[in-house]
Every structure is written in structure tokens, then in C-alpha cells.
Amino acid sequence: MNIFRLAGDLSHLAAIIILLIKIWKTRSCAGISGRSQVLFAIVFITRYLDLFTNFISAYNTAMKVFFLGSSIGTVYLMYLKFKATYDHNHDTFRIEFLLLPTALLSLVLNHEFSVMEILWTFSIYLESVAILPQLFMVSKTGEAESITSHYLFALGSYRGLYILNWIYRYYFEGFYDIIAIVAGCVQTILYCDFFYLYITKVLKGKKLQLPA
């Protein structure tokens, strides 16, 4: 474990907590893409299948349980409890265009052709594009609540911090995982224009408004 990975995990944890607070406090999931949340739940389910078979540490297990529970819980809140506030009309990104290519790619490009490893690879590829429905929705509505933009900033930062973790591990541990690194770079790059808007607008107290 290193400071970059810990900061990344805490940023990821913060993002999920911010989202849960937003939905619970406002009792609404307006502006949030349910499709992205479904993809995140799939990411965690396919990645953490080794929850019971491969014990790394108490921290690792606790975080996996929290990520699994919170992502499934968020989908429940959005599609059942606060279903009436879910904005179907703007959450229209075709997620089959994300699921199929990532599934095929994980069958072709992986470290080991085994069920667990292919599911882990699929999860890594899917996570790199899972935010697209949410970014698409923000561009369609043209704006986002400030709490939603804080959520996106924390979520985008987590994988950016992981890139620093991979650089650290390469130089100090001689470890690197090219699949996670490439997917992590793609994932972080997808946030770049949002990061620009967040830093130039939201941090100055303005609302996140995309140029129409």
C-alpha cells in the first residue's frame, strides 16, 4: 500500500458517500445517471468475486464489501425507492455499446484465460467507460448540481491517483499491470473536460454549466 493508492481509495469512498448523501438528503436522483450506477455495480460484482476466496487484508475486504453494498444500494435507491425522481429522458446512453466491446476485449486481451481473470479484466475495461452515460447525461441536461460535480470530481480523481500509485509501484516495487494502467489512463482522460469545467467554474462558486 502507498499514499497514492490510499488517497485514491479514500477519494473513491468519498465519491460514493457524496452520491449517497445527495440522493438521501434531497430524496432525489435527479441529474444522476442510473445507467452508470448499474455499470458500476457490474464492475464491482465482476471484480470482487474473489471476496471470499482470496483474502488480501481486512482493509481490502472491508472496502470491497462497502463498494459492493453501496453500488447495489445506489441502484436500488435509483430504480426502486426514488424511482419517481429518476430522469429517464436524459439518461439514454446505450450501455450495450459499452458492455459488448469490453466483454469481447476481455476475452481477447487478458493475463490468463480463466473465468475469474476474464471477469476481472472485463471489470477493469468496463470501469474505464462506465462514467460515459453520466457525462453524456450532464452534457444533455447542460448542467449539474454542485454536489453532483463534487461526486464526479472525487470519482475521476480516484483513478488519477491510482495512476500515481502505478508509477510508484513500478519504480519502488517493480510491479505493473499494463491492463489496469491503460484502462486507468483512458478512464482518467475521459474526465479531463469535466475536470477543466470543475476547476474553472465550480471551485469559483459557479454552477457547472456546459456551453450550450
Binding site: 493508492r5 474473489d50 488480501i56 481490502n60 490468463e112 481473470e117 476481472w120 499491470d177 489496469a180
Partner: peptide, 10 residues
């Protein structure tokens, strides 16, 4: 030999 790749990152 298929070394099962143990992923220690979240």
C-alpha cells in the same frame, strides 16, 4: 503453468 494472477488492488 498458469500462475493465478492475484490482484491486490481494489
Amino acid at each position: 503453468p498458469s500462475a493465478t494472477v492475484a490482484h491486490d488492488e481494489l
